[in-house]
């Protein structure tokens, strides 16, 4: 899965969880600025883990600040499989 596909999946997951369209979101967006709190992010990460069959350790999850941070960690996990 390339970065664009991963970003599209991220948007899809966020919209299904948050039930609102995500406008103006880019990889550089700060997750908190999208109105997603820490428990919301945990849900999003969990959904990505489930769909892509990867596992992100808790200590990495708590450090994620931007969308790019999150996608980078997921991409690394995908490549490590």
């Amino acid at each position: 899965m390339n970065n664009e596909e991963l970003f599209a999946l991220f948007r899809e997951v966020v919209q299904s969880i948050e039930k609102r369209p995500l406008e103006d979101v880019t990889p550089d967006s700060v997750i908190a600025d999208l109105g997603i709190d820490s428990l919301g992010m945990m849900e999003i990460v969990g959904e990505l883990e489930s769909r892509l069959d990867v596992m992100i350790p808790d200590d990495q999850l708590v450090k994620l600040r931007t969308v790019a941070d999150l996608l980078g960690v997921v991409q690394k996990r995908l490549e490590a499989r």
Partner: peptide
């Protein structure tokens, strides 16, 4: 900040009650 909430609050509670993050997400 956000990291502290998950790291120091939420995850420790999950751990002590014996529930995984995957179970909550499910």
């Amino acid at each position: 900040d956000r990291d502290v909430f998950l790291q120091k609050v939420y995850f420790p509670v999950l751990k002590r009650v014996g529930v995984t993050r995957a179970e909550i997400v499910s």
